[in-house]
């Protein structure tokens, strides 16, 4: 199931790393984000001490509780989020909006890094939707398959129209 998930995401132009443990995942995310000046990070990322790790590397971190969130988010180059769940077929991650998990973290910055727990991976969308519908719905549940794309120019795929140009998935086991 993990193989199908990873293959599907890669076919949709995502980069995928892992599965790996918490320390490795934190190091991976910090390493990836450290090349950028301003990073937005949701509270639902399942990596303890991630924000501290980023700040120690000299990266400025914007969190949803920050009063300047709305006005500074447009300057963030990377958005880091967790995921409510993921499905292998078709391959996609699902992000639930919440006070610590704004919708725009995975939308406005050019790069979206999503940390996905392998335990949250389900085999198919049809199965997942039965469970999702039975639970409490968030104000917005956003399914993401890869970087923003369009086929509007002569039916040839072009990435990064409005949303992120790159989606990087870090699998956590």
């Amino acid at each position: 199931m993990i193989d199908v998930f990873v293959a599907g995401l890669r076919a949709n132009s995502c980069t995928v790393s892992g599965p790996m443990n918490t320390d490795e995942a934190r190091a991976t995310v910090v390493e990836r984000a450290s090349a950028h000046l301003l990073v937005a990070c949701n509270d639902d990322v399942p990596l303890p001490a991630l924000v501290d790790g980023l700040r120690q590397r000299g990266v400025e971190v914007l969190t949803p509780g920050d009063p300047a969130w709305a006005e500074r988010l447009a300057d963030a180059e990377v958005g880091i989020t967790g995921a409510r769940l993921a499905v292998a077929q078709p391959s996609a991650i699902a992000l639930a909006a919440a006070p610590g998990a704004p919708r725009s973290t995975s939308l406005v910055p050019s790069v979206h890094i999503c940390v996905v727990r392998v335990d949250d991976l389900l085999p198919t969308l049809a199965d997942a939707m039965i469970g999702v519908a039975a639970g409490e719905m968030p104000s917005a549940l956003t399914w993401i398959g890869g970087p923003s794309r369009t086929g509007d120019l002569e039916m040839i795929t072009t990435l990064g129209v409005h949303g992120p140009r790159a989606v990087e998935i870090v699998l956590l086991d």
Binding site: S91, L125, S139, A140, L141, G145, S148
Partner: peptide, 14 residues
């Protein structure tokens, strides 16, 4: 596409 790139499920305002 097996699934569109984004599927947004909206259940009420903010």
């Amino acid at each position: 596409q097996a699934l569109s790139n984004y599927v947004t499920m909206i259940s009420g305002p903010r």
